[in-house]
């Protein structure tokens, strides 16, 4: 094992951080779109309307059953076949959002199903419409309950954003590969971006546990009266 070339990492850090900005931007857009899509997918999976339900189920099955890199290529190259040429940046966000939407959908579905049916019945018995029961009673409780799993999915998505380097988006991994191929310092460059990715995901995890702690108190089994206890 050679000594890690930290000098090179520091030299190229501005370029890497530019790439990291792009990685963060793509992840951020994809998380927001993925969560929104996930809520729609979850309501679809739980819907009484069989077409909506079948569509949502097929979508989740497809995303779960195919590699993410293939999904990225399908969006980038596939849409072009239908005359819809998206820039790489937009294609990356679309592909990551579509992927994340399916997994987030499953997270939300589990959360919604975990809310006691008595909550729905109580809401309905007060004259709230089924939609109001969902938005005011079931969903807020389900959302708090799924924050930890949602956080996992966000971290996964942030790491998976590295895959969009294959369609030529100059994000963190792309830049590292580029510099490495020029300097032959592959080891140093990938250690360098591993540290950057870790810094991002670690910060994200801390933010999420903070969010998790301050969303309480509400739960009947909560011991301290603060935060989420499942």
């Amino acid at each position: 094992m050679r000594f890690i070339n930290f000098e090179l990492i520091f030299q190229t850090l501005p370029k890497l951080l530019d790439g990291a900005k792009l990685s963060l931007l793509i992840s951020l857009f994809s998380v927001v779109l993925g969560v929104s899509l996930g809520i729609i997918v979850a309501t679809g999976r739980l819907s009484k309307f069989w077409t909506f339900k079948a569509f949502a189920s097929a979508y989740v099955a497809f995303i779960r059953g195919t590699p993410m890199i293939v999904q990225i290529f399908l969006v980038y190259f596939g849409l072009a076949e239908f005359g819809l040429t998206l820039p790489a940046f937009a294609s990356g966000i679309v592909a990551l959002s579509l992927n994340s939407g399916a997994y987030m959908g499953e997270v939300f579905r589990g959360g919604i199903q975990s809310i006691d049916i008595g909550q729905t019945q109580a809401g309905l018995s007060l004259g709230l419409s089924p939609f109001q029961v969902f938005t005011h009673i079931v969903f807020p409780q389900a959302f708090r309950r799924v924050i930890p799993s949602m956080g996992n999915e966000m971290v996964t998505l942030t790491k998976d954003s590295s895959l969009v380097n294959f369609i030529g988006i100059a994000e963190l991994t792309y830049r590292a590969t580029l510099i490495a191929s020029r300097t032959y310092e592959y080891y140093a460059m990938y250690i360098g971006i591993a540290i950057v990715y870790f810094a991002i995901t670690f910060t994200l995890s801390q933010l999420l546990s903070w969010l998790e702690r301050r969303m309480g108190p509400y739960d009947s089994v909560s011991q301290s009266g603060k935060g989420l206890r499942r």
Partner: peptide
């Protein structure tokens, strides 16, 4: 419309079913 009927009928349940987040 069912939820319009339910405005006029109050119900109390065995398990209370208070909304824990409110």
């Amino acid at each position: 419309v069912k939820h319009e009927v339910r405005r006029e009928t109050g119900m109390v349940f065995q398990q209370f079913n208070l909304f824990p987040h409110k």
